[in-house]
Amino acid sequence: MALTLSTTRDADTITVSVAGDVDLSTVADLDHAVLAAVDDATGVVVDLAAVTFIDSAGINTLLKSRRLADERGRHFRIANATGVVHDVLDLTGVLGHLSG
Rank of each mutant, 00 (worst) to 15 (best):
F53A: 07
L62G: 10
E71C: 02
A33T: 02
G58T: 06
K64H: 03
D47T: 13
D31W: 02
I14G: 02
T82V: 14
E71V: 08
R9M: 03
K64D: 05
V94R: 13
L35I: 03
H97P: 07
H86N: 15
A81V: 11
A79K: 14
F76Y: 10
T4Y: 03
V16N: 08
D55Y: 00
D12I: 04
T61M: 04
T4K: 15
A49L: 13
T52F: 01
N80S: 15
V51N: 11
A57I: 02
L95R: 11
D70Q: 11
V84C: 06
I78Y: 02
R9C: 06
L48R: 06
V38W: 00
T52A: 15
D10H: 06
S17I: 04
A11I: 02
V22K: 11
I59D: 08
S99N: 12
H75K: 12
I78M: 05
L35Y: 00
L3P: 02
L24V: 08
N80M: 10
A28Q: 11
D87W: 01
R74V: 04
G20M: 08
V46D: 10
G43T: 03
V46T: 10
H97D: 13
L68T: 05
R77W: 03
D21L: 03
G58E: 05
F53Y: 10
H97R: 15
G43I: 04
V44E: 08
A81F: 05
